[in-house]
Amino acid sequence: MSSPALPESAVVRSSGGRRLRVTDSVYTRSLQVVALLFLALMVAFLTSMVLQSRSAFQHFGLGFITGQTWDPVHAHFGVLVFIVGTLASSAIALLLAVPIGIGTAILLAAYAPPFIKGPLSALVELLAAVPSVVYGLWGLLAVAPWVRTVLEPSLQKIPVVSAITSGPPLGIGLLLAGLILAAMVLPTITAVSRDVLASVPTEQREAAHALGATRWQMVRRAMIPTVRAGLLGAVTLGLGRALGETMAVTMVIGNNNVLPHSLIAPTQTIASVIANEFIEATEPYHLTSLVAAGLVLLVICVIVNGLARLLVWSVGRDRIQVDVV
């Protein structure tokens, strides 16, 4: 911010007092020092991750990313299984959460009268406030039995679906992780999509009505095309949240270090394998491989989140709060 320019000496002289005087330059410098400290902290974070994982990357090379074996006993580590598990569980979550989230957002932005809009928005945002570990507990103790006894057996009876849901119904596994993740990313997708849709100028909506469009035609022709990139950004933000989610997934995914051969098979994500094994990692290369897996996850999440923010900002940087949701 450009301050109204006053000669510094004049300001200091007029304020007089005997107490320690913080001049403008000292004040500005101290704020810059705080900002520098913040950047230094982040550099330290990245450096520490790289240093801790370096020996795993040096020892296993590219095979660390492409290897399917995660065998602490024989000190052989590859994270492909966890990358697949992370992407698959997030994909299931998005498949469920995107239509529900965007549908709710359209209702909030274009249809709902104020007395519904406020409470509904607040309730959906409360969904984001419930701690991850509580979702995990609910998933493990309440949803898993229902998935095991009702959902999975009935999916296995549907002709085409049965081919991708083979295996014993366990309750815990990829499908349950996807279901729980869907509930957790819903508020992000809904709230950001709602703000993105609301950023369409009123004139443009009214113009569509004036041309004889029904309300849905107005939404489809005048609102959605204008903010398509922002909606994609909202979904990508949800994806970023799903990829990095740890506790809930750890409790419901089954913690099985093999590639999932079916939609309901227990498997493992990058975050969940770190949560499960870090404390007990004593074998050679185990600890460093876990940190290396964390670094892979970090890189994926930074890329996905960066992309999401660019997409959302393309619609309007000032009007849409991304972080607080």
Binding site: A35, E245, T246, V291, G294, V302, V322
Partner: peptide, 22 residues
């Protein structure tokens, strides 16, 4: 600084545990 803060808001919390551990 603003960009880094935004990136930080989106990273998995478990990686911060790894940092604090180290």
């Amino acid at each position: 600084v603003r960009f880094v803060a935004d990136v930080l808001a989106g990273i998995p919390s478990i990686t911060l545990g790894l940092f604090a551990y180290a």
